[in-house]
């Protein structure tokens, strides 16, 4: 009997250990593949040229150009715009759900918000083409609504569920004692919400926004469909833009294998990877700072 128990124990341990190692291996594998496929690109392209030049024209018969600055800026614009919309709305909805809404309303709204996260990005992109595109064209009196604003709006919609859901969890996790202490001092529920609960939940809310940003920065299909994909350097939110993700998606299918162009596309992927890594790192540092202060 005891022998069986100890065998069972070790089998279970081995299973979980394997799972853990597998997760790490997959991550390391992705990074290694990305790195090894990206590095050959820099045999021909100078890194500073790659990052700081605006022109991307790898198929030019005269002189191929590999500058991705326009795409980096486009990605940052679309993502930044999305966050500008999604963060205030997301926190507002989270605060509403956790503090204001009747519990029955919350029980209906929260699952709906979470279902929103599961809408395929093609569908969201489709919305951009048939709904937001024409609307934006009409509002700003421009010929074409497929531009950075459109992408931002769509990415905001896509990152909202993450931001709402995690912020709401963070607000709910604030000990009830804080709220009671505040109310007992004669604070209104709004003062309690904004001066006690939101600050106490800030680390979670920041994490939520960072995750939302991660969702937005890596999104491909939606921006590919809705932002117009012009290669030119964007001169405003109403310009048609091509993000890094969209560019990789557009060109990877047609690029000849084992060319500088091919490797350069992976290099774009690597840059994107580094960008998200930095975002996560910064978020982590902020989180840790706040947690220290709270303890």
């Amino acid at each position: 009997m005891r022998k069986w128990a100890s065998l069972e124990e070790s089998v279970i341990r081995a299973f979980f250990l394997t799972c853990g190692i597998l997760a790490v291996l997959v991550l390391v594998g992705i990074f290694a593949t990305l790195l090894s496929t990206a590095v050959p690109a820099f045999k021909e392209i100078h890194l500073s040229e790659f990052l700081l030049k605006k022109n991307w024209d790898p198929t030019s018969p005269e002189k191929a150009e590999y500058g991705i600055l326009s795409m980096i800026v486009s990605t940052l614009m679309v993502t930044g715009g999305a966050l500008l919309l999604a963060v205030p709305i997301g926190i507002g909805v989270a605060a509403y759900l956790s503090d204001v809404a009747h519990w029955r309303v919350r029980e209906i709204v929260k699952p709906i918000v979470e279902i929103l996260a599961g809408i395929p990005s093609v569908v969201v992109g489709f919305l951009g083409i048939v709904l937001f595109g024409p609307a934006i064209a009409k509002i700003f009196h421009i010929g074409n609504g497929l531009n950075a604003v459109n992408g931002s709006v769509l990415l905001a919609i896509m990152s909202l569920p993450t931001i709402i859901s995690i912020s709401e969890d963070a607000l709910n996790a604030v000990p009830q004692a804080y709220g009671e202490a505040s109310l007992a001092l004669g604070a209104s529920r709004w003062q309690t919400l904004f001066r006690v609960k939101v600050p106490a939940a800030l680390s979670g809310i920041i994490a939520a926004c960072m995750l939302g940003m991660g969702r937005a920065i890596g999104e491909t299909m939606t921006v590919l469909m809705a932002t117009g994909n012009a290669r030119a350097f964007p001169h405003g939110f109403l310009s048609s833009v091509r993000t890094m993700t969209a560019n990789v998606a557009i060109e990877l299918g047609e690029v000849p294998y084992d060319t500088t162009h091919y490797y350069a596309l992976f290099a774009i992927g690597l840059v994107l990877f580094v960008m998200t890594f930095i975002v996560n790192l910064v978020a982590d540092v902020i989180l840790r700072k706040y947690q220290e202060r709270e303890q």
Partner: peptide, 25 residues
């Protein structure tokens, strides 16, 4: 005013804890 069963200071400084009730006013 009310003092609760478990001490429930805010996750703020000592000063800010006491100033809270005044600041909200």
């Amino acid at each position: 005013g009310m003092v609760f069963q478990k001490p429930n200071p805010f996750p703020k400084s000592i000063f800010d804890n006491i100033a809270y009730g005044l600041r909200i006013n």
